[in-house]
Nucleic acid binder design. Structure first.
Lengths: 134, 134
DNA sequence: ATGCAACCTGGAGTCCGCTCCAGGTCAAGC
DNA sequence: GCTTGACCTGGAGCGGACTCCAGGTTGCAT
C-alpha cells in the first residue's frame, strides 16, 4: 500500500501544501495517516478523494458544502444524502453552464459588432459613428 | 433622453447601489451625470454599458480587467485594443466552458457510481463493499 | 414648510478561500 | 553526528469583490 508525502500529494492533486492542511483542518478531507514522527502520509484513497474534491471545487462548490460532503463521507450509511448533495450540485453546474453559454453568445455579438466598427473605420472614416461608452 | 435614478439603474442592471458607486469610483464605469443636487442620473447608454459589464463579470472577468476595459472605452480610438481584450476574454471563457464540461462529466460518473451503490444496497446487503472515503 | 425616502461621501468592515509566517521537529544522505 | 530540506503547528495576513456605516444632503409629496 503505497503512501505519498505531502509534497507528492500536492503535486498529484494540484492543491498546495497549505490547502491540503487547510482542507484536513476543515474536515473536508478525513484525518490523514501520520508517520511515527507526525508527518502526513497520503494513501491512494486520499489522493482519489482529493481528485474528486478538485472536481467539486472547480465546478464552484463552496467550502461550506465541501465540508458537508466530507462529513457525510465519514459515515458509510449516507450514500443517499451524498447523492442528494451531488445532484443538487450537478444542477447548479448545469445552470452555470447555461449562463455561461448565454453570456458567451453575448460576448461574441459584441465582438462582431466591434469588428464591424473596425472594418468600417478602415475603409471609410465615417465622422461621428455611434460608439458605446462601455 | 430618459434618465434613471440610482435605484432604477440598480434594479435594471442587477448590480447593487453600492456596486454601481464602486464601479464608478474604480473607473470601470465612466462618471455618471448628476442632477443639480449631485444625485446620479443614469442614461440609457450607462444602462447598456452596465448590461455588458454584467456579462463580463458573470463570465469571470476580474475587476482589474474591467477597469482596463473601462479605461479603453473612455477613448474612441481604442477599438482594436478593446477587441484584443475581449478576444482574450472570449478565449478564457471558452477554456472555462471546456473545463466545466469535463468536470461535469466526472461528476455525473461519480453520481452514477453512487446510484449503483444505492441500488446494490437496496437489493442485497453485501458486506464490505468498497466505499470511497471522500 | 416639513416630513421622509432616496441619495450623497469617505472610509471601515466582511466574506471567502486560501497563503504566509515563526519557531520548532523529523528524516535521509554524507 | 550533522547538515539540509521537508515537514509540523497555531495563528496572522492577504486579495478580490463587494457591502455597510455614519453623518449629512436632496427632492418630491402633502
Amino acid at each position: 500500500m503505497t503512501m505519498y508525502s505531502p509534497a507528492e500529494a500536492a503535486a498529484i492533486s494540484g492543491f498546495s501544501l497549505d490547502t491540503l492542511r487547510y482542507y484536513e483542518r476543515e474536515g473536508i478531507l478525513p484525518p490523514v495517516a501520520r508517520s511515527a514522527g507526525g508527518h502526513r502520509q497520503y494513501s491512494e484513497a486520499d489522493l482519489g478523494a482529493l481528485g474528486f474534491l478538485r472536481c467539486l471545487r472547480e465546478t464552484g462548490m463552496p467550502i461550506e458544502r465541501l465540508r458537508r460532503y466530507g462529513a457525510l463521507c465519514r459515515d458509510d450509511s449516507t450514500i443517499a444524502e451524498r447523492v442528494a448533495l451531488l445532484e443538487e450540485h450537478a444542477a447548479a453546474v448545469e445552470a452555470q453552464m447555461a449562463e455561461l453559454r448565454a453570456q458567451q453568445e453575448r460576448l461574441d455579438e459584441k465582438l462582431d459588432w466591434y469588428r464591424g466598427q473596425l472594418a468600417t473605420a478602415a475603409s471609410a472614416v465615417s465622422p461621428q459613428t455611434t460608439v458605446p461608452r462601455a
